[in-house]
Write a protein that binds this DNA or RNA. Structure first.
Lengths: 120, 120
DNA sequence: CAGTATCCGCGCGGATACTG
DNA sequence: CAGTATCCGCGCGGATACTG
């Protein structure tokens, strides 16, 4: 139980903190879900699917995910260049959990919105 | 499939976006996990468990969670005041998913950290 | 005890222009 | 096509002082 206390205070070792640090940002999870559905996508394809993301943020998001080993990046030595992105095996084991989360959100968001509106 | 496209572009109706907007902030998930473990906690108890949260952010976080119907707030009309926080029934159905997420993080974070260190 | 009120820095992410 | 480079505003969250 003393251990329990430490887990909540210690940011370094809190797993939820680590998860949020990886893809708690504005776009990462959306990119992961898109790649989960489409399997393989090129840079501009992702950009078109997520119409509202800026080019810079797509670059930053993909690079971060790649560095963390959450997406594969395959560049073909062609002109014009072609780069394909896909989920890594590790990330594929994560997606069912994300799906659960999305499903929970779908089932509960209407009630939450209602709860929120009453409070105001 | 045209529907699929819309889901990714449309921020209003993306369930994952909605989830992250609710507890993708710095402290919400941590508070939820703590309340999940301890069941009922007073304001200052939460503050002590999460040593690094500021008083302001704990207030803000709890208020947001309460407004969204994700935590119960029960104030006793005493002096000095006593306020108890606990999860709502709705949030209790969310916690297994969060636990899965935490477990996945625990199992994969070491590899991700290694992947990240190689990239630098 | 359980908050409010105020001030403020930093960094996330958008906009725009440019490139191998 | 798949990025890079630069500039910049806004809002999240910390610090500090105060209160019914």
């Amino acid at each position: 139980m003393d251990n329990n206390v430490k887990n909540y205070a210690d940011e370094e070792h809190c797993p939820v903190r680590n998860v949020l640090d990886r893809f708690g940002d504005k776009w990462s999870m959306l990119v992961l879900m898109l790649l989960s559905d489409m399997e393989v996508l090129r840079f501009n394809e992702i950009h078109k699917y997520i119409g509202t993301i800026s080019q810079k943020m797509l670059t930053v998001t993909l690079k971060k995910l790649e560095v963390d080993g959450l997406v594969n990046r395959k560049a073909y030595p062609e002109i014009p260049p072609r780069v394909e992105y896909s989920l890594t095996d590790r990330t594929k084991t994560l997606m069912p959990i994300i799906q659960d989360l999305a499903q929970w959100a779908n089932q509960n968001m209407a009630d939450i919105q209602y709860s929120r509106s009453k409070a105001v």
